[in-house]
Nucleic acid binder design. Structure first.
Length: 119
DNA sequence: AGAGTGACTGCAG
DNA sequence: ACTGCAGCCACTC
C-alpha cells in the first residue's frame, strides 16, 4: 500500500491502515515502517501523521532525512508539516481545481482568488 | 494478569 | 493554531 503512494503525494498512517482494510491500526503501520529495512526501498517518507506533520521529533535525523526526500520530489515541508490539501493522496485540491499546474509560490492561490473576486 | 510504550488519532479547551 | 488527554492496538517485560 505504501509503495502505491504516487510521487509528489503523501498519505497518513491511518489512511494506509484504512486502505488495507485495517481501520484503527495506524500504530501498526508505524511499527511496520520502523521494522522495515531500508533495502526494501519503500517510500516511507510519504507517510505522515493525520494532520500532515512529520512523525519524527523535529530536528532529529529521521526528520531531516524525510524533509530532504520530500523536497526532492516537490513536496514542501514548512514548520514540520505538509499541506495535505495540496499533496494529500486523492485530495489534490489544486490539481482538481486548476489542473496539473504544479507548484506555485506561497500566496499565489489567495492572490488568484482576490483577482477572481474583482471580476 | 497488569503496566508500560509508541514513525497514531480525534476532540476538548 | 497549539496543547492536552483519553482512546487505541500490538507488543514487551
Amino acid at each position: 500500500m505504501i509503495a502505491a503512494i504516487p510521487r509528489g503525494r503523501v498519505s497518513s498512517y491511518g489512511e494506509v491502515a484504512d486502505r488495507v482494510g485495517l481501520p484503527r491500526r495506524a500504530r501498526l503501520v508505524a511499527r511496520v515502517l520502523r521494522e522495515t529495512p531500508d533495502e526494501a526501498a519503500l517510500p516511507w517518507f510519504r507517510v505522515l501523521r493525520a494532520d500532515g506533520r512529520i512523525a519524527f521529533p523535529p530536528g532529529s535525523r529521521g526528520f531531516r532525512e524525510q524533509v530532504r526526500r520530500l523536497a526532492a520530489e516537490g513536496v514542501l515541508v514548512q514548520g514540520g508539516r505538509v499541506d495535505l490539501a495540496r499533496h494529500g493522496w486523492e485530495r489534490d485540491l489544486d490539481g482538481f481545481l486548476w489542473g496539473p499546474a504544479a507548484f506555485e509560490p506561497p500566496g499565489a492561490s489567495k492572490a488568484r482568488k482576490r483577482a477572481a473576486a474583482r471580476r
